[in-house]
Each structure stands twice: as structure tokens, then as C-alpha cells.
């Protein structure tokens, strides 16, 4: 734990010294606040943050890979990973330290978006409980995304490759949980049809869709964002993050075998 804190501090500091992190942070704020602000303020009749939180998962998918790509890939490229892994620290502690550092940086970026609910309180009376739920849901979701992005960063020394792999996999993870998206591209009907055509009962296709939706963080995001904290959602996020952080440690441990 102590070691994780040391790693956390160094990593967070290097985020604040890194131009990429600033660019990503600022672009994220411009896109998120631009669109969400537009939606929220145009809908002036109600002081609500729905637009903001509906948009956020998609913007996170777009920008989080830019934050996670450097975490291991850069260390591998420069060679500091070798030194890092000869410090008397368990690999798990390294992973947790880095994970917390990205989350802290992201939390700082999200703090800037608080401008929006504050403005809304000026326009009308804002119900803060879904807002707080929304932010909590966003952090949980971001944690899941970061855990996935970190795994990709650990499998390559090329940051761009890590970013692209993270981007594609996060888009997929999110996409399989977004019903209107699946409706739009025809999967909702198409998959059962395909299963039927293959001569198997349609229910298998429908079950597959259900499994996808259960895996995707999106549904859990929606549920927490409504302001209802369900233990099942928290357990889901804990398992999801835990699995990918564990996978991350496994990949790094594998490097000791291969060299």
C-alpha cells in the first residue's frame, strides 16, 4: 500500500508535467462541455444534467485512451520499466498506484465540469442527487475504462498502438450495452435472425444479447447515474476493474519470463 502511494504520487506528478495529459484534458473539456452545455442550456425549461451524463460515456471512450496509453508503454520504451520492476515492490502495487494516478487526474479534470451544474442552479433549482449519482457513475465507468486501457498499454511499447487498441475495445465494450445503438445498426434483430438461420433457437441469440448487455459497463452506468446506488452495480464495477487490473499484473509478470 505504501509503495502504491509512492508510485501514485510520482505518476500523478508526471501527468501534470506531461503535455499530452493537458491536451487530452482540455480537449475533453471542450468537447464534453461544448456539447453537453449546449444540450443542457438549450433545454432551459428544466435545470437538468441528463444531457451531460448521456454524452459522457462516449466522450470518455474517445479521450481516456489518450491518458492510459503512456502508463506502461512509455516506461517500456524508455527502459524505466526494468528498473521499476527491480524495486522491492509487488507488481500489483505498481498497477494499483498507476491506476489511482489516472483516476486522480481524471477526477481533477471532471472537477472543472462542475461549472455546468453550478450555472444550472443559477437558472433554476437543480436536483443535486442525480448529479452526484451521475458523477459517481462516471468515475466508476471511467475506472472500468482505465483498467482496460492500462492492459493495452502493457502489451506494447508503442503508445499509439496502445491508444488505438484501447479506443476500439472500449467502443465495443460500450457499444454492446447501448440498446439504441444496437437497434440502429440492426444487431438487436439481426443476431437472433442469424441464429435462427443457422438452425438454432432464436432464444440463444436473444440470450447472447442479454449477456453482452450484462458485460457492458453501460447499463450499470445508467443505473447509478439515475442516483440509485445498487450494491450489484458496485460489485460489477469492482469485479470488472479487479479483473483487468489482475490481467495487467499478469501481462507484466509474463514479461519476466520472456525478457
Amino acid at each position: 500500500m505504501r509503495e502504491s502511494l509512492v508510485i501514485f504520487r510520482r505518476e500523478l506528478k508526471s501527468y501534470f508535467l506531461s503535455p499530452i495529459a493537458y491536451v487530452v484534458g482540455v480537449l475533453f473539456l471542450i468537447v464534453q462541455m461544448g456539447f453537453a452545455g449546449f444540450f443542457c442550456l438549450i433545454d432551459r425549461a428544466q435545470a437538468r444534467m441528463d444531457g451531460f451524463f448521456t454524452l459522457l460515456p462516449f466522450v470518455l471512450v474517445l479521450f481516456l485512451p489518450g491518458l492510459t496509453m503512456r502508463l506502461w508503454a512509455e516506461e517500456r520504451k524508455v527502459g524505466t520499466l526494468e528498473l521499476l520492476m527491480t524495486f522491492p515492490v509487488r507488481i500489483g502495487a505498481l498497477v494499483v498506484g498507476k491506476f489511482l494516478a489516472v483516476m486522480a487526474f481524471l477526477a481533477v479534470v471532471l472537477l472543472f465540469t462542475l461549472v455546468l451544474p453550478m450555472m444550472l442552479t443559477v437558472y433554476g433549482s437543480l436536483d443535486w442527487s442525480p448529479v452526484i449519482g451521475g458523477y459517481l457513475a462516471s468515475l466508476l465507468m471511467a475506472g472500468a475504462f482505465v483498467a482496460v486501457g492500462m492492459v493495452w498499454s502493457s502489451v506494447t511499447r508503442d503508445q499509439i498502438v496502445a491508444m488505438l487498441l484501447a479506443l476500439v475495445s472500449l467502443a465495443l465494450l460500450l457499444g454492446i450495452g447501448v440498446t439504441w445503438f444496437l437497434d440502429l445498426i440492426g444487431i438487436t434483430r439481426g443476431l437472433p435472425d442469424l441464429v435462427d438461420w443457422l438452425g438454432m433457437p432464436r432464444t440463444i441469440g436473444i440470450a447472447a444479447l442479454d449477456v453482452c448487455a450484462a458485460i457492458s459497463p453501460y447499463r450499470y452506468f445508467e443505473s447509478v447515474a439515475r442516483g440509485v446506488i445498487d450494491t450489484r452495480d458496485l460489485v460489477y464495477y469492482a469485479c470488472f476493474c479487479g479483473f483487468f487490473l489482475w490481467l495487467n499484473a499478469l501481462v507484466l509478470h509474463g514479461r519476466r519470463q520472456k525478457g
Binding site: 508526471s14 524508455v78 527502459g79 520499466l81 515492490v89
Partner: peptide, 26 residues
């Protein structure tokens, strides 16, 4: 350990870096 080609965190200050190493080394 000094690995080949001396990898360092380029963005850090020398004293910060040594402090980091001392901390992580316990």
C-alpha cells in the same frame, strides 16, 4: 541496479527522482 543505457524519468528533477527511489526502496 543500473540497467544498460541508464533509463531515467526525464521529466523529473534530480532530487525528486532520488527521493522517489529512496521512498520506493523503503
Amino acid at each position: 541496479y543500473l540497467p544498460e543505457s541508464t533509463p531515467l524519468y526525464a521529466e523529473m528533477r534530480v532530487d525528486d527522482y532520488l527521493r522517489f527511489c529512496a521512498e520506493i526502496r523503503g
